[in-house]
Design a protein around this nucleic acid. Structure first.
Lengths: 152, 152
DNA sequence: CTAACATGTCAACATGGTTGACATGTCGAT
DNA sequence: ATCGACATGTCAACCATGTTGACATGTTAG
């Protein structure tokens, strides 16, 4: 068994199906994909700085500015002084922010559970191994906080 | 073993690593991600119609118009009368179009091969099973030609 | 004190997508 | 033969997400 060109289509279609699941929920809250990604990281890495967050998402600080401002304005994220340094800001999710993140992430987890229930635990292990491998290259250039997202 | 929240991050990072691989090549040719997707499908489904292509990519006919015009102008894709019906157009890739598609897809296949060489064939089988499951929901609403992309 | 650093913010622009509207040509059914 | 449904081409206005470049402000380290 070896790699087929179809695996590329499979990857694309699988990713699309997965993303669509969250999009449906996010639309009800007037949020976009970026907002979901920001909330996802901030919920799991409370106290993360702006630069670290931008690095984890793989976008520039300027690209982060608009969506982050929106989340701050809606009260989903708070920005406070960092404990380490006064020039850094510590970002955290509010209860409301964590709730909306959970609302978007939950269905995705359920979808994965459903698929794995049919495919088996061995399939999940294989899926993780391949995904880890693919993420490696990108991870090397990413800030430390990024790695925390997928490691214990 | 069960689904973890980290699997979502793993999925995102894996997808990003995979897409970045093709992006690097595409940038050298002055093409974008859409162009790659269009070429990928057209190469594998020669004679596909405009509507079918839009459906397979999951975008509107209007969204397809700009990138497709560009690919026609550059001579990567041809548009001819359909054999079935005079109101349909049959899209096909030229030799140049197939070449640039191969240049972008090749490194992605190599990356997958590399990862699977380390993770093992069982991991690949598991990865495919999970991806197939995730693609299912989306596939149901997609045109028949879409399914051909991942089936024999 | 000064230079490096983290941040906030604005502007101009690229890419990829949406909906709506309208014209053209073709096919099928009456 | 006409008429409606269909596939397409194309334009416009707009949205979401990203880029680079520039510049201001406050903070920390040497």
């Amino acid at each position: 068994m070896s790699i087929s060109e179809r695996d590329i289509a499979l990857f694309f279609l699988g990713w699309r199906g997965f993303v669509d699941t969250a999009d449906a929920v996010l639309a009800e809250h007037g949020l976009g994909r970026v907002d979901h990604r920001v909330l996802y990281v901030v919920v799991r890495q409370p106290g993360i700085t702006v630069s670290e967050l931008a690095g984890a998402l793989g976008i520039s600080r300027q690209a982060l500015h608009r969506p982050l401002s929106g989340l701050l304005r809606r009260g989903y994220v708070t920005r406070s002084a960092s404990a380490r340094s006064g020039r850094e800001r510590a970002l955290s999710a509010t209860a409301a922010g964590a709730a909306v993140e959970r609302a978007a992430t939950g269905p995705q987890l359920a979808q994965l559970e459903h698929v794995v229930a049919a495919a088996g635990d061995a399939a999940l292990a294989g899926w993780r191994a391949v995904m880890r491998g693919l993420a490696e290259a990108t991870m090397a250039a990413a800030p430390p906080r990024t790695r925390h997202l997928i490691e214990s």
